[in-house]
Nucleic acid binder design. Structure first.
Length: 199
DNA sequence: ATGCAGATCGTCT
DNA sequence: GACGATCTGCATC
């Protein structure tokens, strides 16, 4: 079942937690790829100086100002895309960054697009998963609450969730230490996961 | 195992 | 004109 628009309208930190365990599905001409969401981050708009929408409405973040459940996709470092879903209270330009997936479908296709073999290397980061699922600017603004090229369906609730500070936002003066990154505890497919637990 | 430089371009000042 | 919500490969310890 596709998650309804109401799923995305609560506090974005709650939405980010609740997205863990759900399944991101990408339908393309090459085939279907999908994975369990295992890592997310919440970005809170005007309260959050780490957020792209902190300074208000610009062309880049226009997708955050419409209906919730819209794909907000941007190019980072000139070479990688990152996928977010708009969320939060009506009128607030908030979103959840999808940071990692556990691959479940179309694994051969993902491996081909990534040029990597190991399962752990396919979707363990925001840029990686966009490459594996062929997510780019052509999907900007797509409604993930509708059947289509990109949508999110319900999966199993994770057993345990962990919260940590967000990655790569040290420039944020006010919110860099807020624990708004969420992962499924112990899941090996999160970004930065190690092969073996360091003992 | 850890660290660092380079790639590369859209977006905003 | 400067700078990323990143990833990779190569260097070093």
């Amino acid at each position: 079942m596709i998650l309804p628009r109401s799923f995305y309208s609560g506090d974005s930190r709650e939405v980010a937690r609740n997205l863990l365990g759900q399944i991101l599905v990408r339908e393309s001409s090459e085939g279907r790829t999908a994975g369990v969401i295992v890592e997310t981050e919440a970005y809170l708009g005007k309260l959050d100086d780490a957020a792209h929408s902190y300074k208000g409405r610009t062309h880049r973040v226009r997708a955050l100002f419409g209906e919730k459940g819209a794909a907000y996709i941007y190019l980072i470092y000139g070479m990688y895309y990152c996928l977010n879903v708009s969320s939060g209270p009506a009128g607030e330009p908030e979103c959840v960054l999808i940071r990692a997936l556990e691959p479940v479908e179309g694994i051969d296709l993902m491996a081909h697009r990534r040029g990597k073999e190991k399962l752990r290397d396919l979707c363990s980061g925001p840029g990686k998963l966009c490459q594996a699922l062929q997510i780019d600017k052509s999907l900007y603004g797509v409604d993930v609450t509708q059947k289509g090229p990109l949508h999110i369906v319900s999966g199993a609730a994770p057993e345990k969730i962990e919260a940590t500070p967000r990655i790569g936002i040290d420039y944020a003066i006010y919110t860099k230490d807020e624990p708004w990154r969420f992962i499924i505890a112990g899941n090996p497919f999160v970004s930065g996961a190690k092969k073996k637990p360091s003992l």
